[in-house]
Each structure stands twice: as C-alpha cells, then as structure tokens.
C-alpha cells in the first residue's frame, strides 16, 4: 500500500471494488424488490383488472426491448474479455454498441410511453381515473413507476459505461486494472436482470 503526498491511499484492490459493486447491486435489487412486493400484493388482490390492463401494453415492443437488452448484456460482457486480451479497439467498439443499444431501448420506451399518453393514460389523468377500475389504475401506476425507475437505471448505467470508455481511452483502465469496466458490466447486467422480471410481469400476463 502506497501513499501519495496527501497521505491518501493509492491502492488498487479489484476484489474490494467488485464486492462493493455487488453490495450496491443488492441495495438496488431490494429497491426494486419493494416495488415487486407491491406489484405481487396488488396483482393478488386484482387479478382480473391486471389481466385487462396488461392488454393495453404492446407485447412486441416489450419483446423487442428484451432482445435488445439481452444483446447489449452480451456485448458488454464480451468487452471484458477483449480488454483482458488487450484488444483495446474491440473493447471500445463493443462498449459503443452497448451504448447505442441502450439508447435505442430508451427511444422505444419513449414511444411506448408516448402512445399511452396519447390515449390519455398517465398517473392521475382524468381518463384513467374516470374510465378504469381501481385495479387498472394500480396497474398503470406501477407500470409507470417501475419502467420509469428502470429507465433511470439505464441512464445511470450508460453514464458509467461512458466513464469506462473515457478511462480506457486514457489508459487508466487496462488489462491489469479492469475493475471499473467489470463494475460497469455488473451494473448493466443488473438493469438487464430487472427487465427480465419486469417484462413478463407487465407484458405477458394477458
């Protein structure tokens, strides 16, 4: 362990960063866990209404987004392999693909929400409050909160990947100091993991 002039540590412990990231992922899982708990209770209480409301969602867009996220998960996982094999160009390329897919996901989400808004469905909208049953109001409330929070995590994940790209280009992240890239990957997989559950619970229960 070495010290710089300020008496601060300049040490690198890849395993510590990895555990730190995992622990952070645990808190994220329980953050969404609370929402899944709410979802399961309300679904249990309003099975018919959830069934009906899910018909409003577009399964094809949901499926497309699922496929996109799975592919992006593979590209970012591969980028770790290329970095360890010292193929910097390939690493940057794979990360760029990941970012593009992430942005496409968000664009899809934007249009999906837009269609709902066009139909007059948003939290607290008059159409929703007047013409839908209580179970359906809950379904859409949860739909907007959970997919919205998920989209927010995509944006955070993209920011971390951008940080990794900058560090790789600067050369401070390389085959012997890969922790930042690995953590960016872990975080991106978390986003994927949550979507794996969101997709069937909202789009496939019709």
């Amino acid at each position: 362990m070495e010290n710089n002039a300020n008496g601060e540590h300049v040490h690198y412990d890849a395993e510590a960063s990895k555990i730190g990231m995992w622990l952070f992922i645990f808190t994220e899982l329980l953050l969404f866990g609370g929402l899944f708990l709410i979802y399961s209770v309300y679904r249990f209480k309003n099975p018919e209404a959830f069934h009906l409301a899910a018909e409003e969602l577009n399964t094809s867009i949901g499926a497309l987004n699922t496929v996109l996220l799975l592919i992006s998960s593979m590209t970012i996982a591969m980028s770790t392999t290329t970095l360890l094999l010292k193929k910097k160009g390939a690493t940057l390329g794979l990360l760029a693909i990941t970012i593009i897919i992430g942005i496409v996901f968000l664009v899809n989400k934007y249009f999906e929400w837009g269609v709902k808004f066009d139909h007059g469905i948003w939290p607290g909208s008059e159409h929703l409050l007047n013409d839908f049953s209580q179970g359906e109001i809950l379904f859409f409330g949860l739909y907007f909160v959970m997919t919205g929070l998920h989209a927010l995590h995509i944006i955070i994940g993209l920011a971390i990947i951008v940080a990794a790209i900058i560090r790789i280009r600067k050369g401070t992240v390389h085959e012997n100091r890969a922790a930042l890239l690995e953590n960016a990957g872990l975080y991106w997989h978390l986003v994927d993991l949550i979507w794996i559950f969101l997709f069937p619970l909202f789009y496939l229960i019709t």
């Binding site: 998960s73 593979m74 996982a77 990957g185 872990l186 997989h189 994927d192 993991l193 794996i196 559950f197």
Partner: peptide, 10 residues
C-alpha cells in the same frame, strides 16, 4: 434467465 445472467454474464 436470471440464473444464466447471474452465473455467466455476472
């Protein structure tokens, strides 16, 4: 699916 992601991707 999540088992696969956790085991291999993560």
């Amino acid at each position: 699916k999540s088992f696969l992601v956790l085991t291999y991707f993560m």
